[in-house]
């Protein structure tokens, strides 16, 4: 799947993802600060953890980017000594994989809010599966579990979908994304004018 990625694609993906890793590192303590409230308000900002995948994909628009981005973001966070320790790597891997599968299902041809939101929801499902094993969340009382899952879904759509699209749109306006997108046939034809 990664065969087609050029060095520029990979390096740009990893650098921006590690940039997000830095943001996650700032995000982590905030997450734990709201967590003890117990009512799972923390889950509303959980979606921030999936954003590297969709932002990188929307910028570079190639297969494998979403997965690579999540792995890179979590490695960056891990190597900086995250409070979450090793689990970030596993979560990153699973979340990236789940997002990638959605993008693949749309054959990497759609770059709109709907598709990236679904990718975000998919990442969210991936993280929940891990939570069931790791955090026994199934053993929460039912109303509490619903709150937990509901908040996380909403957060995923807000961050991985809406915010990611907004960020990339603003980036496109700066013109910097042109660097990493392939030149079009039209440009090649213009050379013969």
């Amino acid at each position: 799947m990664f065969k087609g990625l050029k060095l520029t694609d990979i390096l740009v993906t990893i650098v921006i993802s590690i940039g997000f890793g830095i943001l996650y590192k700032i995000w982590g303590p905030l997450y734990y600060a709201v967590k003890p409230l117990g009512l799972h308000l923390d889950q509303l900002i959980y979606g921030m953890w999936f954003i590297a995948a969709t932002v990188a994909f929307l910028i570079i628009r190639k297969p494998g980017i979403a997965l690579l981005a999540e792995i890179a973001a979590s490695s960056g966070e891990f190597l900086m000594g995250s409070e979450f320790g090793l689990e970030v790597l596993f979560y990153g891997l699973v979340q990236g994989l789940f997002a990638e599968l959605v993008l693949m299902a749309f054959r990497y041809k759609r770059f709109d809010l709907l598709v990236v939101s679904i990718a975000g929801i998919s990442s969210c499902i991936g993280s929940l599966i891990l939570d069931f094993y790791k955090g026994y969340v199934g053993d929460l009382s039912t109303w509490n579990l619903i709150l937990y899952i509901g908040f996380r879904f909403i957060g995923s759509i807000l961050f991985t979908g809406v915010l990611a699209v907004a960020i990339v749109k603003a980036l496109e306006a700066t013109g910097v994304t042109k660097l990493v997108r392939s030149s079009s046939q039209k440009d090649h034809e213009a050379l013969n004018q």
């Binding site: 042109k178 997108r181 030149s183 079009s184 440009d187 213009a190 050379l191 004018q193």
Partner: peptide, 11 residues
């Protein structure tokens, strides 16, 4: 040599 930057009009 001819060269064209993407999204720019002229060569």
């Amino acid at each position: 040599l001819r060269l064209k930057f993407p999204d720019e009009k002229g060569l």
